[in-house]
C-alpha cells in the first residue's frame, strides 16, 4: 500500500513496526515497571548513568535491539540501507549522546513512552527535537551537504 502523493512512504510497514515498538515498551512498563527509553537504558548499561535499573537488565535490553533487527533482516529480503560516512557518524553520535543525556531521553523515552502518558516534559522535548531535526535536514539540503558515503 502506498500513500497518495507520497510514493516513497511505507505506511503499513511503519504502522506494524510502530505497534511492535509500542508492544515492547508496554512489556517493559507492565512487566518490569520501567520506561523503555533507549538512551537512558544504554547509559545505565555502560555505567554512564546512575539509576535503579539493574545493569544486567539494561544490558539485556540493549542486546535485544540488534537481536530483533537480525531476526527481521534474516526473515525478509529488504535492501540494505546506506549510512553516513564515518566522520559524519562520529559528529552525529557525539551530539546525540550529549543531547539525550542533557535532555533526559530520546525518541523512545520521550517520544513513545512520554507522549503516550501526556508528560509535559516529553511533549516539549519531542516538539524541540523534531523542530531541530527538521531544521537540520533543511539546512543541510540548502547548503548542499550530503551524508552518503
Amino acid at each position: 500500500m502506498t500513500l497518495p502523493g507520497f510514493p516513497e512512504a511505507a505506511p503499513l510497514a511503519g504502522l506494524a513496526g510502530g505497534v511492535l515498538i509500542g508492544l515492547a515498551a508496554a512489556i517493559m512498563l507492565l512487566g518490569a515497571g520501567r520506561i523503555a527509553g533507549v538512551s537512558g537504558i544504554a547509559a545505565r548499561a555502560f555505567g554512564l548513568a546512575d539509576g535503579s535499573m539493574p545493569r544486567a537488565g539494561a544490558w539485556a535490553f540493549v542486546i535485544g535491539l540488534p537481536l530483533g533487527a537480525l531476526l527481521v533482516t534474516g526473515l525478509t529480503e529488504a535492501p540494505r540501507p546506506s549510512f553516513a560516512d564515518p566522520v559524519t557518524l562520529v559528529i552525529a553520535g557525539l551530539i546525540v549522546g550529549i543531547g539525550t543525556r542533557l535532555g533526559s531521553g530520546c525518541t523512545s523515552g520521550h517520544g513513545v513512552c512520554g507522549m503516550s502518558r501526556l508528560s509535559q516534559r516529553s511533549l516539549v522535548a519531542v516538539a524541540t527535537f523534531m523542530a531541530t531535526g527538521f531544521a537540520t535536514v533543511a539546512a543541510m539540503n540548502a547548503l548542499g551537504i550530503g551524508v552518503s558515503p
Binding site: 559524519t88 546525540v96 531541530t132
Partner: peptide, 26 residues
C-alpha cells in the same frame, strides 16, 4: 531539557540515527 533535546534533534538530523536504531543497526 530543552537545550539537550534541541541538540539531540540536530544529531538525529545529521545522520538519521537515534539511539535505538543505532544499536539495532549493529
Amino acid at each position: 531539557l530543552i537545550g539537550g533535546s534541541a541538540l539531540f534533534g540536530i544529531g538525529w538530523g545529521i545522520a538519521g540515527l537515534c539511539p535505538g536504531p543505532g544499536f539495532a543497526a549493529l
